[in-house]
């Protein structure tokens, strides 16, 4: 009886993607429990233990929730490290020769492309990473979270990690394309740093993908940014704007705010309002495009939004 029930639970756990040390520990405890039950001559130990399928499903749901949450938090840690290194490389540019003409690289057409990638992708990584962090915080006390919610958390983490990885490749490409006009130490520092950071990003991405293996509780829906920041969206002045019902209104307001910030920063950096206008306009348009492309995937708008 013990072997039969243990095998059945092992089969259910395997089918639900619970593997390795977690599965071994669960099975060892189940076996010990049943042996104790037999030793004490309990009546029908298998029936007393309960249904193997529901037991395995609960264990799998717990493992899926905990491992996805852990992977998301780990991803944010790696992204923070990459972000700090990325900003440090930017901060060192003036000391390495300063920003030159965007068409002044070895391959003329590559400059603008790399420039856009190094400017936009880190922002996507930052926003997606922060959304994943806030979501992981929102569900921090949940024992079991539905599959849709966990899929959203993994998607946000993966978009953040993917964007960060491409941004690092673009930064290394930028350094090599402009190596003739930049100090050699900066070029090598940029290439080595970006290459080194790709490893932890890949490891974090593997953990995020691996956390999809245990089958999560199928019930439930994925929430969105309005749930992540519910205390803010519930404030009366913001609620009156109807952002939850009209997600595009939310996107346009955010684009306006980002555009204004870009305008002020551009003006301050270049000392010229025209440059501020170009930067602000670029940031606002980029946000609207990203919202259209990634809004649903990142839970920035509801499916009917």
């Amino acid at each position: 009886m013990i072997d039969e029930l243990a095998h059945e639970i092992a089969r259910e756990l395997e089918a639900l993607g619970v593997r390795g040390t977690t599965r071994d520990r669960v099975l060892a405890e189940v076996r010990d429990h049943l042996e104790e039950s037999v030793r004490r001559r309990d009546e029908d130990p298998a029936a007393r233990f309960g249904e193997p399928r529901s037991f395995a499903r609960l264990v799998a749901s717990q493992v899926a929730t905990a491992s996805t949450r852990r992977a998301a938090l780990g991803s944010f840690g790696v992204l923070s490290l990459a972000g700090v290194a990325y900003l440090a490389l930017f901060a060192l540019v003036p000391a390495a020769g300063g920003w030159s003409d965007i068409f002044g690289g070895h391959v003329q057409a590559l400059g603008p492309l790399l420039g856009v990638a190094t400017a936009v992708l880190p922002q996507i990584a930052f926003v997606s990473g922060c959304l994943a962090l806030v979501q992981a915080f929102r569900i921090r006390r949940e024992e079991v979270v539905g599959a849709a919610e966990l899929a959203l958390l993994r998607r946000r983490s993966n978009v953040a990690l993917g964007s960060a990885a491409i941004a690092l490749v673009a930064m290394a490409g930028f350094a090599l394309d402009f190596e003739a006009v930049m100090a050699a130490w900066w070029t090598w520092l940029a290439v080595v740093t970006c290459a080194a950071l790709l490893l932890p990003l890949a490891a974090a991405s593997y953990l995020v993908s691996d956390s999809a293996c245990p089958a999560a509780e199928p019930a439930g829906v994925a929430h969105d940014v309005f749930d992540d920041f519910a205390p803010i969206f519930r404030l009366a002045p913001i609620r009156r704007l109807g952002l939850v019902e009209h997600a595009w209104r939310f996107a346009l307001l955010a684009a306006a705010a980002v555009g204004c910030a870009g305008f002020v920063l551009g003006w301050l950096a270049e000392g010229d309002p025209g440059s501020g206008l170009v930067r602000g306009g670029f940031e606002a348009v980029a946000l609207v495009i990203c919202f259209a492309a990634l809004g649903k995937a990142l839970g920035l708008r509801r499916s009917n939004g």
Binding site: E29, V30, H33, S37, R48, G50, E51, F55, V59
Partner: peptide
Amino acid sequence: FAEGTVYP
């Protein structure tokens, strides 16, 4: 209890 429920 259904005894298995104690472990999760």
